[in-house]
């Protein structure tokens, strides 16, 4: 089975700036794939290319086995001789940046645009509205919607016809906490419920840990790191954090016994650990040296911490 999305050697430049440089990426079927990167690294350009809003200078984009762009000779060379393959576009549902809505239409009228163009029956409107919990607002004019409702409506539009690939740029932007939870749950469940593969970009790394099955980090226009989220979690260093009455004494005690420990700014002591036995040994050692322990907990490095350490410089 081909990948749901495959990018091969994608390059894109604007005047004298190379935004994407030989970008290669494969998104497996049924995955919830997070696309990470700092501002200006080429994330938005990649998403614009994936949704047919921009064309690459070089390379190929294949969606579920269908090439998104075809190159040919054109009368006007300024169009880059690239045209978008509508058959590939019809496999995608997209939400790019802020929702694009027509404020003068009702939610149902707005969705009927996508329905008409994709050749879907009108019952699809009620289905997607209920998926994003907007069924009671079907006949309300979009201009009266809150930002969160607009975001939900845009997601509903992207979900029309159960696309094979859903491409979302910052999908939880503007949502309230319960809306964020609902949308995360919805997106995480989509591969199982409808077979839709989800590809999304976000700056919220907590979201990635909660939703994604795989992620990639874009830097300077090419993929710098890519991994399954479970593999990444397993590979992350774990540590023990303790709060004690005498941190300096505890630190001396632990380093004296060969533990790799350090004193944090907030007075806590952090010790790199490998096994549960080592954790028990730490507690025994501190009690033996008369160091009172107020609290002790096991800590894994978060994706946010990892991303900040590894990819922000």
């Amino acid at each position: 089975m081909p990948d749901a999305l495959m990018l091969s050697n994608i390059s894109k430049s604007f005047i004298d700036k190379t935004v994407l440089d030989e970008l290669n990426l494969a998104v497996p079927y049924g995955s919830v794939f997070a696309f990470l990167g700092n501002n200006g690294e080429g994330k938005s350009t990649t998403i614009r290319i994936l949704t047919g809003l921009a064309s690459p200078d070089n390379g190929e984009v294949v969606i579920c086995g269908e090439p998104l762009f075809s190159r040919h000779r054109r009368l006007l060379r300024r169009t880059h001789g690239v045209s978008v393959n509508c058959a590939a576009l019809s496999l995608i549902g997209g939400l790019i940046d802020a929702p694009s809505l027509y404020p003068n239409l009702t939610a149902a009228e707005f969705l009927s645009i996508g329905c008409r163009i994709k050749g879907l029956s009108r019952s699809e409107i009620a289905r997607v509205l209920s998926v994003v919990s907007l069924q009671s607002s079907a006949d309300r004019v979009v201009a009266t919607f809150s930002l969160g409702m607009k975001q939900r409506l845009a997601i509903a539009h992207a979900l029309l016809g159960n696309p094979k690939l859903l491409i979302l740029d910052e999908p939880t932007n503007g949502l309230d906490p319960s809306g964020i939870r609902d949308i995360r749950k919805l997106l995480a469940e989509l591969p199982a419920t409808t077979g839709t593969t989800v590809f999304f970009s976000t700056h919220n790394l907590d979201e990635v840990e909660k939703m994604a099955t795989r992620f990639a980090v874009l830097k300077a226009g090419s993929i710098q790191f890519e991994s399954d989220i479970t593999q990444w979690k397993a590979s992350q260093q774990q540590c023990q954090v303790i709060e004690v009455a005498k941190p300096q004494q505890a630190l001396a005690c632990l380093t004296g016994q060969g533990f790799n420990a350090r004193l944090l700014d907030n007075g806590l002591v952090e010790i790199d650990t490998i096994t549960r036995e080592q954790q028990a040994a730490i507690h025994r050692l501190l009690i033996k040296h008369d160091v009172e322990i107020y609290q002790s907990y096991h800590k894994k490095q978060s994706l946010e911490q990892w991303f900040t350490d590894e990819h922000t410089h």
């Binding site: 047919g52 509508c86 576009l89 019809s90 790019i96 802020a98 027509y102 163009i117 994709k118």
Partner: peptide, 17 residues
Amino acid sequence: NEHKNEGWRLMLSLPVS
């Protein structure tokens, strides 16, 4: 209608010529 509401983005990401 398209310029004001970013409708280009919506319309061009749909399968239309």
